[in-house]
Structure formats: structure tokens, C-alpha cells
């Protein structure tokens, strides 16, 4: 689904965010991306969503070289990737409903369908009763979940999340991760950047470890239950 081939990213001003990064992400896979802040996690996600272009190497998304996508085609590519931001990026002067509905309005979906799907998405993230509220009236965790509802409403095959549990307490974090697992079980490819090592370890999914712009470790997924099996 997603493939990085010798990707480097150098920002103007000389900051080397990524150097020679290569990995593959299969369709329907759930992967964590971890590493210290500044290791290049956000840059890596931005390269997939075409918020940045690689300086060197190729990013292939669904068989297409992302670096060769024309400006006109970028929006259509972005519609196939749901992105969840650490700072939510919600529109504070628009109701929760309208925030979540945004991707569908852009695509020109009928209002009846928008209503149905927004309700379903809000229901999925447990905010069914908050659709008329404005984002500032919600808690950080709730806002994060509005962001998730917006990211999944277009039914994208890929979901990217940048520190989705960054500001949440452990209980909420676990709940949120359960939502991601559910989506993954429904066939969505999920890539989550997080430095919450305890949480990542508990979930036992594949983990890519970034350090100083390079992938230093690629821990494969553990089968569920392996951990609790007695030795011998």
C-alpha cells in the first residue's frame, strides 16, 4: 500500500529530517511509528499525505509514485488518506457536524447521505450527542475524536495519525487505540506516530523505530496471545 524507497527529506535551511528511509506497508496492516521528538515521525507522515515532497527517493502510494503526482491531482490523493493531527486542526467556528462533514461536502455527496454518514461516524467515536457543539466546547480527547471521525468519514483505505494520544490520559488513550484497532480490522491500513511506548508494546503491532531521520528498528507484529503463553 505504502512504500518508501531510499527517501530523504531536507528542509530549506538545511535541516535533514529523513535520510535514506526504506520500508513497506502492506494493505490492511497496522503499524506504529515511534522515536524521540524530532526523529522525523511527522515528516514521514507528511510525505505520505503529500503535505511535503521528498528531496530524494520515492514514496509510492497504492502503486503511484507520490512525488510525480501533479498539483491538480493532489486533492484526489488526499481524499484517499485520512489524517489525524496532534493539534486536531478543527474549524473552531463550525459545529462538530460540519467539521466531520467537510470531506463529504468537498466530494459533493448529497445532504441526506452526509447526515447519515456523519451520524454514523460520530457514533463510532462515541460523540453522537455532540454534533451541534463547537470544538472549543469539547475536551481535548473529544476534539481528537472529532478529528478521527473527520478522517474516517470518507472511508479512506489509509489512516495516518500523528500523536493521536498526545494529550490524553491513559484510559482515553486505550479507548482511542481500540477505535484504531476496530478500523484496522475493517481493512483500513493504519500508521500511527506515537511515543507512548507502553501502549505500543501492549498492543503488539508492528513498530518502526525512527532515530535521527533513519529507521533503526522494524519490530514485526506479535501474534495475539503469544506473550501470555507459558514457555515450553
Amino acid at each position: 500500500m505504502i512504500s518508501f524507497q531510499h527517501v530523504s527529506k531536507r528542509y530549506p535551511g538545511g535541516v535533514q529530517a529523513l535520510s535514506d528511509v526504506s520500508f513497506e506497508l502492506g494493505a490492511g496492516e497496522m503499524t506504529f511509528l515511534t522515536g524521540r521528538s524530532g526523529a522525523g515521525k511527522s515528516t514521514l507522515l507528511k510525505l505520505i499525505a503529500l503535505l511535503e515532497r521528498p528531496s530524494r527517493g520515492q514514496v509510492v502510494f497504492d502503486g503511484r509514485n507520490v512525488g510525480k503526482v501533479s498539483r491538480r491531482q493532489i486533492p484526489y490523493l488526499r481524499r484517499r488518506i485520512g489524517v489525524i493531527f496532534q493539534d486536531h486542526r478543527l474549524l473552531t467556528d463550525k459545529r462538530v457536524f460540519d467539521n466531520v462533514a467537510l470531506p463529504l461536502m468537498i466530494a459533493g455527496v448529497s445532504f441526506g447521505e452526509i447526515q447519515r454518514r456523519v451520524r454514523a461516524a460520530l457514533d463510532k467515536v462515541g460523540l453522537a450527542d455532540k454534533e451541534k457543539m463547537y470544538p472549543p466546547m469539547l475536551s481535548g480527547g473529544e476534539q481528537q475524536r472529532v478529528g478521527i471521525a473527520r478522517a474516517i468519514i470518507g472511508r479512506p483505505p489509509v489512516l495516518l495519525a500523528d500523536e493521536p494520544t498526545g494529550n490524553l490520559d491513559p484510559g482515553l488513550s486505550a479507548e482511542l487505540m481500540e477505535t484504531f484497532l476496530q478500523l484496522n480490522r475493517a481493512g483500513v491500513t493504519v500508521l500511527i506516530a506515537s511515543h507512548d511506548l507502553a501502549l505500543i508494546k501492549r498492543l503488539g503491532q508492528r513498530v518502526l523505530v525512527l532515530d535521527n531521520g533513519q529507521i533503526i528498528d522494524d519490530l514485526p507484529r506479535r501474534e495475539r496471545g503469544v506473550e501470555t503463553e507459558p514457555d515450553g
Partner: peptide, 11 residues
Amino acid sequence: VLALVGATAAF
């Protein structure tokens, strides 16, 4: 935000 969720320049 509109651009992030896939709005075209025309939109």
C-alpha cells in the same frame, strides 16, 4: 484544513 482533507484549488 480544506486543503488537508482534499479540497481542490477550485473548490
